[in-house]
Amino acid sequence: MKETVDWISSLPDEILTHILSFVTTKEAVQTSILSKRWRNTWVSVPVLNAWEPSAEWLDRVALLMPQVISVLVATENFECPDSVFSCASLESLKLFLIHPTAFTFVSPESIALPYLKTLELDGLRLGDNFMQQLFSGCPALQSLNPNDLDLEESSPSIHTQKREVRKATSPCIATRRLESGDVEVVRTTTRVSASSPPRY
């Protein structure tokens, strides 16, 4: 007869965290129901990869000092919490807020992501000075991948930014470095849906 021990309790916390880094955040959080030991284990996983989380939840977990946040939301009027844009530990941020008929408006009060290296944005309508905030608030940014964005037409900041982003790739918006060092964002968005009215 085999002895019945909770084998997993013999593993140190770092290993449990490592195990949880292989599953989605949803699955990792679901382990909180297993036992007291597991209740808050997921909290230490540095990678948050969530489909359709609630804004309130996202607001809370941004305080857990994650290194990666990757969010996919397709519900209308999703209010992306400001805390995501002031998460000091963040190295990679992916915001795919892709509602089929409406852009999701994102206009954080401020942006302060000192360690952010890669940023991917999809389906957003950005606030007036988002780009300006972005370039001044993300000194470590190496890769910007904007995809299907609605930039405020009047936003002058995009053309006046004096900052070089080393790598920017996008099928929809091409960011290229001009001789003067300015970054120019050229809109070439062509996402059209036959059944939905034009969005802008």
Partner: peptide, 23 residues
Amino acid sequence: SKIENEFTHEEEEEEIPSENAWV
């Protein structure tokens, strides 16, 4: 995994699910 579930009924049914409702 032979994990022993030492939660009370209340914790299991209400408290923990409400912490991270979306999952």
